[in-house]
């Protein structure tokens, strides 16, 4: 049994494939999407706990994707993970409700802790 469900959204398959593998080994159920639209389509049909979202993607960028994810699946926690160190974009993401904004490269275990924290936050959320 996996701990919880994660969706990786990134257009770089070289990054996504090995990361999915490593997270699965750490007992998470991992799916991936290679664009913002694909992520939204996935979320509208399948339940998910935490999304890991790249900021710089062609077509729909990460910030726009985040905005729409919060519309279609407000309970999902989103962690931005990017090679893009930009204070402005980072804070915009945080204001839109991202759980955290991490910069590549990230240690796998640090990412795992963030995922666990985000999931825990989701499950503690008071019913309103």
């Amino acid at each position: 049994m996996s701990e919880f469900k994660v969706l990786l959204v990134d257009d770089e398959t070289d990054f996504v494939v090995p990361l999915s593998k490593r997270l699965r080994k750490r007992n998470l159920e991992v799916n991936s999407a290679s664009s913002g639209q694909e992520a939204l389509d996935y979320l509208s049909q399948s339940p998910c706990d935490v999304v890991v979202l790249d900021v710089k993607m062609p077509d729909m960028n990460g910030i726009e994707t985040l905005r729409r994810i919060k519309e279609v699946a407000p309970l999902v926690e989103v962690i931005m993970l990017t090679g893009h160190a930009n204070v402005e974009v980072a804070i915009e993401g945080m204001e839109l409700g991202a759980f955290d904004y991490l910069m590549k490269p990230v240690e796998i275990d640090d990412l795992l802790y963030k995922l666990q924290d985000a999931y825990k936050k989701k499950s503690y959320r008071p019913i309103s």
Partner: peptide
């Protein structure tokens, strides 16, 4: 500089 500032702000 950018990475540290961004991470601190976040």
């Amino acid at each position: 500089v950018r990475a540290n500032c961004t991470a601190t702000a976040v």
